[in-house]
């Protein structure tokens, strides 16, 4: 019985995950002419290194990597820190105005940010096309999810430690930085992973908000590679770039798989 189940799972995983993965890998290793109509066969001539070199230089994947890192790390760090500070207040106060502010700040879980009016706003603020405008948008939308998850966690943390520190005369900032923030580790880890995946992979918002090649993120670079040849798609470069865009997250996932899945699951239960 168990053997049948494992065989069935292997077949399903092989077809659903293995086939697309295989197609990406073999065609990323083919020279242009061979990858013109992508197939499942192994390359006759191997061009994997050449394709990666082209993607990194002409496709500006290096710039994309830097921008993606900068924007994702900046957004996630801000969201987690500002979100924890707010969630501490929300989790500890039962007053009506604070509760209303809490609801106002988690609407973003359900209702996404409108993209065109964000462009308009950024123009008014003098931020049009900048990385900062994109970080602002990500923070504005995803603080909702972070605040929601962290507030739930704060409520489950006993107050005694904070009260003891207060009696000893510690200020609020100090209590937050030395006692509360470190206790939030598990939920910050879970929320951080989810946010990192959302923001790292986002194309939609970046497509509207960022301008200029020097600011493009990895997904924008992928779009540029796809659009670079107007007659036919250079699938060899496209698939090489798909690997470049995906590899950082996949590597981190493979290394920390168990903790990551457990963390995401813990976040899911709370929701």
């Amino acid at each position: 019985m168990r053997t049948i189940k494992y065989v069935a799972l292997s077949v399903v995983a092989g077809l659903v995950i293995g086939v697309p993965l295989w197609m990406v890998l073999v065609n990323a290793a083919k020279p242009f002419a061979e990858a013109r109509t992508p197939g499942f066969g192994l390359p006759h001539d191997w061009a994997l290194v050449d394709n990666f070199r082209t993607v990194l230089t002409e496709g500006r994947a290096g710039v994309g990597l830097l921008n993606s890192l900068l924007i994702t790390a900046g957004s996630v760090a801000f969201i987690l820190i500002a979100g924890s500070m707010a969630a501490w207040v929300f989790g500890r106060s039962a007053s009506r105005p604070v509760r209303l502010l809490f609801y106002a700040s988690i609407v973003g879980i359900l209702v996404p940010a409108p993209v065109i009016t964000s462009v308009y706003l950024d123009a008014q603020l003098g931020l049009q096309g900048t990385r900062l405008s994109l970080i602002g948008l990500y923070a504005g939308v995803y603080l909702s999810l972070a605040i929601f998850l962290i507030t739930g966690f704060v409520r489950s943390v006993p107050r005694e430690l904070e009260e003891a520190a207060q009696l000893e005369g510690a200020g609020r900032l100090r209590i937050f930085a030395t006692i509360v923030f470190p206790l939030l580790g598990p939920v910050l880890f879970a929320a951080g992973i989810v946010l990192w995946v959302f923001i790292w992979n986002d194309f939609f918002y970046a497509f509207f908000l960022l301008s200029g090649e020097s600011r493009q993120t990895l997904p924008l670079g992928l779009f540029a590679v796809v659009s670079s040849n107007s007659h036919s798609t250079n699938w060899n470069y496209v698939f090489a770039d798909v690997i470049v865009v995906s590899l950082p997250l996949v590597l981190v996932f493979v290394l920390g798989q168990r903790r990551i899945l457990a963390g995401v699951m813990a976040g899911g239960i709370k929701g």
Binding site: F78, I81, A82, G83, M85, A86, L101, A104, S105, G108, A113, S118, L121, G136, L137, A139, G140, V141, L143, S144, I147
Partner: peptide
């Protein structure tokens, strides 16, 4: 910090 960013950018 959180409320200002949510208000302005969202």
């Amino acid at each position: 910090p959180a409320l200002v960013v949510v208000a302005v950018f969202y």
